[in-house]
Every structure is written in structure tokens, then in C-alpha cells.
Amino acid sequence: MPDDDPDADLMLRFRAGDEDAFAELVRRFQGRVVSLAARYVGSAADAEDVAQEVFLRIHRARSTYEPTARLTTWVHRITVNTSLNALRRRRVRRNVSAEMPGRDAGSGEPPEFADADAARPDEESLKVELAQVLRRIVDALPERQRTALLLNKYQGLSYEDTAAAMELSLPAVKSLLTRARVNVRDALLPYLESGTPPA
């Protein structure tokens, strides 16, 4: 077990039957799990569904848990995979709905978490618009670039923890992060210069 991982201690206590340790683990990780899930599935409500599934998977896996890596990388890996599964299911449902007459396939554009409809000062509106533009850019990245970028910049994981969470080598993650950063910068530049959101 990594020496400096108090989260892994919690999971070991839970494996030994301490349900309070699981409750503490949920409290400790809920914000990060919901937040990351929301970056994939769009809405806070859908993110909570995903997060609930993440914690249930952790709960079910307690007997097989081995602290071979930092707990946070394990939780992030489950969150990413559960979020991607949710996205796949949503795509299947949309395809099914789109082929059935009289059914609404949905707009396909989840709202940003901030309440964009509320009246706001100009500066706040620009922040919301920038977040929406940026979200579209990040969503359009290849899947592994997006995951690496979210784990590293949004969740604050180190390169090493990002690599562990994605089960990739450190050089591979470094390469993914570089391409992601270049792609985001290049896609964002026209908006920052002209103020016109990309189509």
C-alpha cells in the first residue's frame, strides 16, 4: 500500500467490516466523483446517478479490494468507466428513440451547471459562455485526451496518478496531455480573439 494514503486505510477498514469507514469514504469523495461524472454526462442529476453507481461498485468490491495503488486513482478509474458506460447507454437510447416515430430524442445539449438562464451581469454571462464553449471543446476531444485532461487539470491528479487511473504509462499520459492542451488552446483561440462562439 502506498505509505501516504489515508484513503486506502479507510477502504481497508471498510473491507474489515467498518461501515462507518465507507460512509466517510462517500463523504470524502462525493464532490470529486459527482463533479467528474458531470463533465461526462452533462447534468448534475445524471452525474448523481453515475456517482451512486460508482459508490455501489466500490461497496460491492470491498472484499476484493487490494491497496496496490492510491485509492483516489482507483475511485477515479471507476468514475471514468461508469461515466463512459452511461454515455454509451445514452447514445443507444437516443438512437432507438430517434428511429421510433413520436418519441423525443432529446436536445443532446445538457446545460452547464451554472444557471445560464438567470439574469446576470455581463461579466458573469461571459464566464458562463466561456464555460459552455470550453465544455464543447473538451467534449470534442478524443476520449483518452479528454479523460487525461480532466483527471489532471480538472481533478488535480498528478501525471503519475493520472497514468495509474487510466492504466497507461507515464510517457503515454504525458503525450495525451500535451495533445489535449494544444487542441484546447487551438480550438479556443478563435473564440478568445473574436468573441464568437464556435458553431
Binding site: 460512509a23 462525493q30 464532490g31 459527482v34 448534475a44 451547471f113 466561456l130 465544455r135 487539470k153
Partner: peptide, 19 residues
């Protein structure tokens, strides 16, 4: 900018529902 993207906050009863 990516680091500063908005964050979803779990609802007040989320942990209780999970447990």
C-alpha cells in the same frame, strides 16, 4: 481554464441516499 470549469455539487442528501 479547464481547471476552472464549473463544478457540480452533490445534493445535500446524496451521501445519505448512497448509504
Amino acid at each position: 481554464l479547464v481547471a476552472a470549469l464549473p463544478r457540480a455539487t452533490p445534493s445535500a442528501d446524496f451521501a445519505a441516499r448512497v448509504l
